[in-house]
Amino acid sequence: MRQAFTILTLLVAAPVFAQGSGPIPELANQQLADPKKEAEATNLMHGLRCIQCQGQSIADSDAPMAATMRAEVRQQIAKGEKPETIRKWMIGRYGEWVSFEPEMKGSGLLLWAAPVLLLLVAVWMARGLFRRRA
């Protein structure tokens, strides 16, 4: 645990993989004019995983690919696409891995059922404690 969060430093510090040089896509660091659409985009960006980083979302990354993905999200939102459609589009490019929110089907089903199952098991286990009336 020693370096728990502190290592963040190193991350921002991500090894400067040579990343070349090029313009940053227009909408990567530029908000949409409509605050509602921007909020939708931001929300989606926090749920998409940066391809070139160690587990950051594209909303929290300086990597060029994250910038490209942010631009893509904003463009599609601006065009009126639903966030869910865009998420699917990204999954169509990089597989389930790119989404921080696993699908509620297949292997993801157990994950989403976990909170309810755990709660039921815990209550069931605790039920015995109250049985005897004082």
Binding site: G47, G55, G95, W97, F100, S107, L111, W112, P115, L119
Partner: peptide, 18 residues
């Protein structure tokens, strides 16, 4: 054999209600 990510959207939705 599945490559998935579990991140903030899941954890927030699952833990905040509890």
């Amino acid at each position: 054999g599945d490559k998935i990510s579990v991140g903030p959207p899941y954890f927030n939705k699952a833990t905040v209600p509890i």
